[in-house]
């Protein structure tokens, strides 16, 4: 018992240090593709946090969507746009300091709010419950529940959003072809209408 508790605490601090270090590397790395790999690290460690918080299904979803989907997409687009040649991604000092100021401000604000309202959480249990529950079935029921505590309407709305995104992505991708076929017509001075 004592061992598993100690392991939990140790893992939290280990994950925390690793995730913050990787996050800093993500935003400060000069090479964009490496930044994507660091981002993948942060997102994978977040899945570890979900496991510590007893949400295994969410950890699986996190890895599936972020690592298998979003990071792969980012890497793909970095390759397509030759972003790695964007060597000038060296933010100016003014830009950097403004960003740092904003980040610090948000952090300080958040911590102040937590400090001032810490007593409110105390009654709710001073530590996060780390029991592992079988959340798969519960999430499934909650998502399709039509009762007052159910999420069927947001669920359908998100499905609609995804459909819109699929159509939007295809439209954006097709637009290039339309432009290219239209381009020679505009600039054609010899009537090369090969369409």
């Amino acid at each position: 018992m004592i061992w598993s508790k100690a392991t939990g605490t140790l893992l939290f601090y280990l994950f925390a240090v690793v995730s913050v270090a990787l996050a800093i590397a993500t935003v400060s790395s000069r090479r964009i593709l490496r930044a994507a790999v660091y981002l993948m690290g942060v997102l994978a460690v977040t899945a570890g946090f979900y496991l510590l918080l007893g949400a295994p299904f969410l950890a699986g979803v996190q890895i599936l969507v972020y690592v298998g989907g979003i990071v792969v997409l980012i890497v793909y687009v970095v390759m397509l746009t030759r972003s790695s040649d964007l060597a000038e991604d060296k933010p100016s000092a003014a830009r950097k300091s403004t960003a740092l100021l904003a980040a610090l401000a948000s952090f300080v604000l958040a911590v102040t709010v937590f400090k001032s309202s810490e007593s409110a959480f105390r009654g709710a249990g001073s530590q996060a419950a780390t029991m592992l529950i079988d959340d798969t079935a519960m999430i499934g029921r909650a998502l399709l529940d039509r009762g007052p505590r159910g999420y069927v309407l947001p669920f359908e709305l998100v499905s609609l959003l995804l459909l819109a995104v699929v159509i939007g992505g295809i439209t954006l991708a097709r637009k290039i072809q339309v432009d290219q076929s239209a381009a020679p017509k505009e600039s054609s001075d010899g009537g090369v209408a090969n369409a």
Partner: peptide, 16 residues
């Protein structure tokens, strides 16, 4: 207990 989800999730790493 999320075996199948885990298997599909992890195989994305290979593509990366």
């Amino acid at each position: 207990n999320i075996g199948v989800l885990y298997v599909t999730a992890v195989s994305g790493l290979g593509a990366l």
